[in-house]
């Protein structure tokens, strides 16, 4: 029985997600979707629920109500560790890397969920399959280090690198797992204007080469507007705007809660 050739579901569907911490409502029924190969901006004041939403998608936090579907699969039935394998990768605002390992080792660690031969085979180093997977992982790491201009620091311990470089390492590690959806938490933090411009081009390139979608939390409005296809805005755990970057920026609720009056004077100069 063939399914009718309707449009495939969006890559990610967030539907009526509610999260409460004690008495505080962190997310009050948020719904939106991320299409295939879409760059989706997610903005909102500090504490408006953006990170909580990230945590729900990556499995660090469980919604009290609502559902999140990834390629049509309800995530509430997928345990956290399996989500990376499903194709969801993420970076953190303050980075979460193995600080004493080198850049290359961190990226290799990211490639691990792809390796299918399992713990036992790896532990016993059985047969050619493990070796082939290792070779492939090293090849992936090499390619990513080149893409993100990390070759010069490949063998340096991550803890010694400047923050902006660590953020690129984290991006490489997330990409190494071959995600279909990349959750990026403030990739422009600590970057100057020229570096942000390069980051924007890098995000486009990543989308093209890896054929993935990006959900981007970022306060750098210039970056958000220049790379996003659509933007969602949250405030106090509720969606206050959803649409093209231009439309969202012009939304009175967004100006009131997030940008501030006359924001063009400052926000963009960043």
């Amino acid at each position: 029985m063939a399914a009718p050739a309707a449009t495939p579901p969006p890559l990610l569907e967030v539907e009526g997600v509610v999260v409460r911490f004690g008495g505080v409502v962190a997310l009050a029924g948020v719904s939106f979707e991320v299409g295939h190969r879409e760059i989706r901006g997610l903005i909102g004041p500090n504490g408006s629920g953006k990170t909580t939403l990230f945590n729900c998608i990556s499995g660090l936090c469980r919604p009290a109500a609502g559902e999140i579907r990834f390629e049509g699969v309800a995530l509430s039935r997928v345990p956290r560790h399996a989500r990376a394998r499903l194709g969801i990768g993420r970076t953190f605002q303050h980075t979460a890397l193995f600080r004493s390992l080198t850049v290359r080792e961190n990226v290799l660690a990211g490639a691990h969920p792809l390796a299918g031969s399992g713990f036992l085979a790896n532990a016993l180093r059985l047969g050619g399959r493990v070796r082939r997977e290792e070779r492939e992982a090293e090849e992936t790491a090499r390619r990513l280090l080149a893409l993100l201009s990390l070759e010069a620091v490949a063998d340096a311990p991550v803890g010694r690198l400047p923050f902006g470089t660590q953020k690129r390492v984290e991006l490489a590690r997330a990409l190494a797992a071959g995600p279909k959806l990349l959750l990026l938490d403030e990739p422009a933090g600590g970057l100057n204007h020229e570096e942000v411009y390069r980051l924007a081009r890098l995000l486009f390139r990543i989308r093209r080469e890896f054929e993935l979608s990006i959900l981007l939390v970022e306060h750098h409005m210039h970056l958000v507007t220049s790379v996003s296809d659509r933007v969602v805005a949250l405030d106090f755990g509720e969606k206050i705007a959803d649409g093209t970057p231009e439309a969202v920026r012009a939304e009175p609720a967004v100006i009131r809660a997030y940008l501030g009056e006359g924001a063009a004077a400052h926000g963009d100069a960043a």
Binding site: I43, P45, N46, G189, G190, A257, Y258, H266
Partner: peptide, 13 residues
């Protein structure tokens, strides 16, 4: 050290 880091535009102001 980077007082604007991670802050929404309104909070930065």
């Amino acid at each position: 050290d980077e007082p604007s880091f991670g802050l929404a535009p309104l909070a930065v102001r």
